[in-house]
Design a protein around this nucleic acid. Structure first.
Lengths: 170, 170
DNA sequence: GCAACGTTTCACAAATTTGTGAACGTGCAA
DNA sequence: TTGCACGTTCACAAATTTGTGAAACGTTGC
C-alpha cells in the first residue's frame, strides 16, 4: 500500500491542483511550481530540479519562483558551501503563512474604500457602502490573528494525535 | 460639504476600485460593474444604465452581470409591471454575502487536497502536506459562519450608533 | 401583423498573458 | 585561461482574455 506513485500521475495531479490555485489568484506558472513543491516529496529544490521535474523550461521557473518568494510562499535558501540556491516550502504551517499574506494583500482595498468614503461623503448610499467595505476589511484584518491562533492549536492537536497521549509538555 | 461629486471623479474612483477587486479574483468587467453599483447612489440599474454609466458597450455589460449574478454578488430583479430587469447590490450585508460565496469557492481545493492524500498516501511528505491543506480548508469552512455572525453583530452596533440610543423597536 | 425598445449573441480586433529558445552572466574547476 | 554548469534576461510566438459593432432575439404596444 501507498506504493510508489507513478510520476505521470503525480504530475497530472500537480497540474490539477495548480489550476485550483489559479482560482484563488495565483498566476499559472507560480501555481504550478507551488503545487509541485507541496506535492512532491523532496524538501528542497534547485531551479533546475523544478524545471526538469515539471517538464518546463528553466526560463519559466525563474519568474515563477521570484513571484512565490516575494509573496512569501516559498523560501529561498542556500546550503552552506553550495553554489546554487534552493527553494523550499515552509513546511510548518504552510497555510497559516499563506493566509497571513493574503490578509496583507487586502489592505489596498481597505485603503481604497477609505478613499471612497472621503470622496462620496458618509451619508450618500455609495459612501455608506464604502464605509461598510472599509469596516469589513478592517474587522477581518483584526480578526485574522485570532483565527490563525485557533488553527494552530487545532493543527497541533490533529498532528500530535499520533504521538504519545500524555506527553504533558510536548 | 459632501457636495455633488464630479462624474469624472466618481468614474475614476470606480476604475481604481475595480482594479483592486481584480486582485481578489474578479475578472475585469464584472469588477467594474460591481464597483460601479457599490459606489454610485442608485438602488437599481438596468443593463442600459450600467452601460451608459460606465461608458462601455451594452454587450460588455451582458456577460459581466451574468457572472456577477451567478456568483451571487448581484441580484437580478424585475419591478412589478416593468418590462426590463434591474440589477442591484444586496445592500444589507454586502460583504457577508461575498465572503460566503468565496468560502464555497474554496471547496474544490479542499476536495482536490483530499484526492492528493489518497494518491500520495498519508505518510509521505507530499501526502502530509495535502492532509494539512485539506484540514486547513475544512477548518476555515467550519469557522466561517461563526466569524460572520461576529461581523453581523459588530456591523449592527457600528451602524446603529447613529440612531437614537433608546429606540427599542426602531 | 409589425414597429419600437432593450438585451443577448456572435465574430472579430486589440491587448494581455504565458512559455520558449537563445544569448548572456556568474562562479567554480582544471 | 578555458571549459562547464546553472540561472537569469530578452525577444518573440502562441494562446487567452477583453471589449466592440452588428445582427438576432424577445417582449410590448399599436
Amino acid at each position: 500500500m501507498t506504493g510508489k506513485v507513478e510520476r505521470q500521475d503525480l504530475l497530472r495531479f500537480v497540474e490539477r491542483f495548480a489550476m485550483g490555485l489559479t482560482e484563488v489568484g495565483l498566476p499559472r506558472m507560480p501555481a504550478r511550481v507551488f503545487a509541485y513543491v507541496l506535492v512532491d516529496d523532496a524538501e528542497r529544490y534547485t531551479a533546475a530540479e523544478l524545471a526538469s521535474g515539471l517538464r518546463v523550461s528553466p526560463a519559466a521557473i525563474s519568474g515563477a519562483v521570484r513571484t512565490l518568494v516575494q509573496a512569501g510562499l516559498l523560501g529561498k535558501e542556500r546550503e552552506p558551501g553550495a553554489r546554487v540556491d534552493t527553494y523550499r516550502v515552509y513546511d510548518h504551517d504552510i497555510w497559516g503563512v499563506i493566509t497571513t499574506q493574503r490578509g496583507k494583500s487586502s489592505e489596498p482595498i481597505e485603503q481604497l474604500a477609505a478613499e471612497g468614503v472621503a470622496l462620496l461623503g458618509p451619508d450618500s448610499p455609495g459612501g455608506r457602502r464604502m464605509r461598510e467595505t472599509q469596516e469589513f476589511y478592517a474587522f477581518f484584518r483584526r480578526k485574522l490573528p485570532e483565527i490563525l491562533d485557533e488553527w494552530h492549536e487545532y493543527r497541533r492537536k490533529l498532528f500530535d494525535a499520533h504521538a504519545d497521549a500524555d506527553t504533558g509538555s510536548g
